[in-house]
């Protein structure tokens, strides 16, 4: 038996509720660990002390106060639970507002989607002139779209590949 097992059994040992074999185990442990005898004694004395504490009592006017309260309680009308079933088209207000916002959101999304479809349709009809595609203006794209396509892809490479050799300076220069 270790210390933790012993501590688990202290109360039962003090209250004499252990089986004979377990009681013997505890006693054997106590012989091997005499310092823990103090623990058992302290727990036992605490229990005895708590049991011997003077009992408190209610005040002398307790009964009369209680009678008054009960009289008041009896006179008080019974509370009826008022259940108000607020609903909008069969939905609770919170659910209804959620559904409404969901509908608005889906309408908004679909409008955006349709807008993009318009754009694709216009691109297919677009006119190619001198590396530029003039896109017909959709209702939402006024003032916005003008896509330039470079004539040669090497042009892009030249722009991106800056010549850094001029900026390199050696230490002894």
């Amino acid at each position: 038996m270790n210390q933790y097992q012993f501590e688990d059994l202290i109360s039962d040992y003090v209250e004499n509720k252990l089986t004979i074999s377990k009681r013997k185990d505890v006693e054997k442990y106590l012989i091997e660990n005499p310092k823990d005898v103090l623990k058992v004694n302290q727990v036992r004395e605490n229990i005895l002390f708590l049991k011997s504490l003077p009992k408190t009592k209610v005040s002398s006017d307790f009964d009369s106060k209680l009678k008054d309260r009960i009289k008041k309680e009896s006179l008080r009308p019974l509370k009826k639970k008022i259940i108000t079933k607020k609903n909008i088209f069969g939905f609770k207000p919170i659910n209804f507002s959620f559904f409404i916002s969901l509908i608005f959101f889906s309408v908004f999304l679909s409008y955006q989607f349709i807008d993009e479809l318009f754009l694709l349709g216009d691109l297919s009809k677009g006119v190619f002139t001198n590396n530029e595609i003039e896109v017909k203006k959709t209702p939402k794209m006024l003032n916005q779209r003008k896509i330039t396509v470079p004539s040669d892809s090497t042009e892009i490479d030249q722009k991106n590949n800056k010549n850094f050799s001029k900026n390199i300076k050696l230490v002894n220069d």
Partner: peptide
């Protein structure tokens, strides 16, 4: 309950020792 009582008593013992 037994376990709680035991632990409570041990805690009380520690506090009051």
């Amino acid at each position: 309950i037994k376990s709680r009582i035991n632990r409570a008593r041990l805690q009380l013992r520690r506090e009051l020792k």
